[in-house]
Structure formats: C-alpha cells, structure tokens
C-alpha cells in the first residue's frame, strides 16, 4: 500500500487572521495566514485546514480573500470550514481556491445540503465535520452523540449512524472531533474513530485531544484514521511536522517525507 497517512495542522481564523498565534521561529507576523500556511507547506504538512470562528456573517468576505491569498502561494490541499450554510457558501470557498469545504452544523439542520453540494461539486471536495461526545452505551459497546455549537448543543443523533448517513449522502471525507477529548491532550477517541471508520467507508480525519506524537500513531493504528489533525502541538513549537512524521514512520506508518 503506497498511500501515506496525512498530518494536517489546523488553523483557527477570525476576521481573516490566525488566532491564538503560531510560534514559528522568526515569523514576522504570528497572525498572517499566508505566511503561516507557507511555513507549514515548507515544513511538510500534507494539507492545511482553516477553521473560521468569525462570529459575524459580514466578515465572510475577509475569509474569501484570505483563502484566495493562501491558494495563490501554497500548492497543497486546503480545507475551509466554519459557518458554511449553503451551496452558495460552498461555491464561494471553492472558487476562492479551497479544495475541500467542511460542513458541520448546517448538515444537521439540512442533510440535503451535503447531497446537493456533493452532486454539484463532487464528493472529493465535501467534508462533513462530526463533533461527537460519549453518551451512554457500555465500555465494550460505547455510544456517541452528535453535538453542535462547539459541543454545547446535543442533537440526539447517534454519531456513528450519522457519519454513515453523511458518507452515503456524498461526503467524500469525515472530520471527526471528539468533544470529550478536545483540549485535553490525552489522545484521540480511537474507539469512536474506529467505529466510524468501519461503517462509513470514506477517509476519516481524527481530531481532538492530541498531546504528543504517540497520540498521532495511535490515531492511525488504533483509530484507523487516514489523517490526523492537530493544532496546539504544532503551533506552539512543541513538535515539528518532520518530528511527527519521523515518529510515525518509526512506528511503521507510511508518511510523505
């Protein structure tokens, strides 16, 4: 098998700027998305994901310009998520230069949006983001529920069934974030990812909980993730992408050098 497991740094964007800062050596402007994306590209990131956390709808134009600027200089796949509500939003992001668009809350509100967008633009560019939290079940057969609004609002929907339904509707990839693990640095919820991976059949990006490089390895080997997404361990210079890849390769995982 020749396909490499992917490492994807995730950047939070507000008003067209990277928030929380990214600490690269000698970076001129810690909030400049173009410079940060260029650095990650050079450092060996396999893709870059931008998560827009801008509250106001008016600032969406700023995001479009940001995507255009990044896509003019960085030639690896770019995913944009956050606040995508309609087929028109998807089109705007793709036209700006995004390769994939992640749909989250809007898919819950209107599952047909995923089918429409996939039919219109192809499954390859439609990512459905699933935010899941453990809810009941047993240790051997756990259950997870889909949450929206950053993990604050429960939906009553079973996360594994939902992921399968979204893949069937045309999602070409799933970005699965464990809301239990997000920010904890204790590792991905590998049982969740494994359950979704077995049912959905499309590539899965594991997200939420990375604190060290072993967690990335576990995400692939135990969680059956095709890609691992992380923010803080890379942004604050704890580990470089190259260190992460070397660690994964030593564990027998195929990576892009």
């Amino acid at each position: 098998m020749g396909l490499a497991s992917r490492i994807i740094p995730c950047l939070d964007i507000d008003g067209g700027r990277v928030v929380k800062g990214v600490k690269f050596v000698e970076i001129r402007d810690a909030g400049d998305p173009v410079e940060i994306a260029r650095r990650y590209d050079r450092a060996g990131a396999d893709e870059i994901t931008f998560l827009d956390i801008t509250a106001s709808h008016e600032e969406r134009d700023t995001l479009v310009h940001m995507v255009e600027a990044v896509a003019s200089e960085v030639f690896i796949p770019l995913t944009v998520g956050g606040g995508i509500r309609s087929v028109a939003d998807v089109r705007r992001m793709l036209n700006a230069g995004a390769d994939k668009v992640a749909i989250n809350t809007a898919a819950i509100r209107d599952p047909e949006l995923v089918r429409e967008a996939a039919e219109r633009f192809g499954s390859q560019c439609i990512v459905v983001a699933v935010d899941a939290k453990r809810s009941g079940g047993t240790d051997t057969e756990p259950r997870w529920e889909v949450f929206t609004h950053g993990g604050r609002r429960p939906t009553g929907i079973d996360a594994v069934a939902w992921a399968e339904q979204m893949a069937a509707a045309g999602a070409g990839e799933l970005l699965v974030t464990s809301m239990d693990r997000d920010g904890t640095r204790i590792g991905f919820d590998n049982a969740l990812n494994r359950a979704i991976s077995a049912r959905a059949g499309v590539p899965l990006i594991a997200s939420g909980g990375v604190g060290n490089l072993q967690h990335l390895v576990d995400g692939v080997l135990e969680g059956h993730a095709d890609a691992v997404l992380a923010a803080s361990i890379f942004h604050f210079g704890e580990y470089s992408i190259a260190e992460a890849k070397a660690y994964m390769a030593a564990a027998g995982i195929e990576v892009r050098e």
């Binding site: 098998m1 020749g2 396909l3 490499a4 497991s5 992917r6 396999d46 499954s123 390859q124 070409g172 990839e173 991976s197 077995a198 059949g201 499309v202 590539p203 899965l204 059956h224 095709d226 890609a227 892009r256």
Partner: peptide, 13 residues
C-alpha cells in the same frame, strides 16, 4: 479491504 477507503485521498507514490 475496509482499510482502503474510497475515494483514495492523499499522497501516493
């Protein structure tokens, strides 16, 4: 093979 997801997405040799 359930580990070979479709679409193939990513960097291949």
């Amino acid at each position: 093979d359930p580990r070979l997801k479709i679409p193939q997405m990513g960097w291949n040799r």
